[in-house]
Design a binder for these strands. Sequence first.
DNA 1: TTGTAAGCGTTATCAG
DNA 2: CTGATAACGCTTACAA
Lengths: 341, 341
Amino acid sequence: MKRTTIKDVAERAGVSTAAVSYVLNGREGKVSGDTLLKIKEAVAALNYIPDYSARSLAGNRSNLIGVVIPQTEDQKRLLLENPFYSDLICGIESELRQRGYHILISGVDKGQSYLDLTMQRNLDGAVIMGIYQESFYEELKKVEIPIVLIDSYINDDSFKKIRIDDELGGYLATKHLIDNGHTNIGLVTGSIRKDGVVEKRYLGYKRALQEANLFYDHDCVLEGAVSYEFGLEAGKLISSQHKNMTAVFVTSDMMAFGVINGLREEGLQVPKDISVIGFDDISLADIFYPRLTTVHQDIKARGIEAAKHLMDVLARKEDLDTGVVLQPISIIERDTVRKLN
Amino acid sequence: MKRTTIKDVAERAGVSTAAVSYVLNGREGKVSGDTLLKIKEAVAALNYIPDYSARSLAGNRSNLIGVVIPQTEDQKRLLLENPFYSDLICGIESELRQRGYHILISGVDKGQSYLDLTMQRNLDGAVIMGIYQESFYEELKKVEIPIVLIDSYINDDSFKKIRIDDELGGYLATKHLIDNGHTNIGLVTGSIRKDGVVEKRYLGYKRALQEANLFYDHDCVLEGAVSYEFGLEAGKLISSQHKNMTAVFVTSDMMAFGVINGLREEGLQVPKDISVIGFDDISLADIFYPRLTTVHQDIKARGIEAAKHLMDVLARKEDLDTGVVLQPISIIERDTVRKLN
DNA sequence: TTGTAAGCGTTATCAG
DNA sequence: CTGATAACGCTTACAA
């Protein structure tokens, strides 16, 4: 089946390709009402579908937004199994689709630059999730497209950042435990890297402890991978070695599930024997048993927000406003924290 | 930053653009060893990155594979929240990336055709998940690219199908319950549509019942949406109205979680009071409490299989072999089925 | 307001 | 084995 081109449309409407192009791109003001009508008729009659490759090549937008998501350790797979990322993508996609954009999902291999993809596909913009090495961001600056960072505390005016206040979240979670009468509170966390979300949550934990004049015991923090598996391990460890804890703050829901199951495998009940509070409020938090008390953030909303910003910049051709957007968080009380007082 | 083009490479190597193009596309046999070397040097030195838009326009591959996934009822969002689909995508992506392809994820709005996207983006191939109306497949045939169907029982030689034996799965699941001494077995299922996976699973359920000379009671099947929410509802319903059942076969894990939680909310324990077996073995099945006994299928493997087939066809330029690939399934025994005998 | 035509970066045909 | 050169479909000065 031969492709219907802009030329065909122009012919049928009895106008030039330029006129058709104008109409197609919303510059309807550039043509007369009469030709506008004729063109619209022709487009509909011929069921014309523009070729985005050609459009992209001709120097315009590709209508493609790159979405970078973290990968598994071995770099073989995207971390899509983590509902946090799929929710985020869900939000981004739904917003972008309405505006005629598509998303190109990918990971970035270690030590690699994102420039390649950007050039190859002529991306119009990008959303970067996760945390990378300094050099990655340096490279990223060379790309001349608007970029939104999710979950990054990097302080650079080249990027728009959409975040939550992770420190506050860590503080609130810990305080929630303290308010419920817990004084011996452990921490299970992903690896604490400078300026990462995890570090902030950890800092919040420490602040809450300090404020309540509780002793910070470094032996009570278990640091590892942000995964269900590590949580499981940590849960077992806690039950065997740290019997004195009455509560644990876990810096991500997936890990928290692991902790609870690990505890259970060793015969400890949550929240009867030990309380657990998570972070993220992924949809599973409400499905898991016992239902997980956690720090809520609206994940999809973050995706939508990211997409909207990109669209705004792209539409108005303004410079990417370089600020930080903070999305609200709150404690969702469910069934994994026991009141001691 | 000015873009490095194939022309720049040709200039630096002192050859024509054609020669460079040959080398870039693996037809290295078409140039002499000497020029090959010079070209390789130039590509590396200039850090040349091909423009896929131009390549696509010039009539070749776009190196883009479309992936269609079902949407929420309101058509606003992709069903990415369902781990089944994200796992599948994970598999497809990992396989395609290694071959230099990218995936374009999208839904298809009701009554819409997929032709549009295919034309717009010059897709090289597509993977279609979910089940659509007859007319959708009719339209799809007009697209002249290889297409793989996942989860569809449509009988059409234009498409490659990658499936599991859903009827057998339903049979095995039900038989597993029977073998454990259950005789009064309910069914919670998504809506039973002709030739859908759900119908097959339902048929398997009936066959197992029949084979064991058990009475098929239509009142014991609860039909609704394939969602956690409906499962929850069904669980509550079962506890209030169908106390005589000792076991339930639920046609998807996500629903099974709902059923178990619904039962629990009404004070019934799984598997003590009632046994539950699911279908799919999504990763959560092992995280949920109690750990879900279910029909296992390797979801990622299906994604990988789909991707591989597409790559094979695209590479060899052969016709898409139109067969059906059946992936193995098996019962995974965990903690939600109680032995009565 | 309209049309012409020169690119955009690649591939592929077709002579040398 | 190599190198011009004409597509591919679209956008956008620029000219009419």
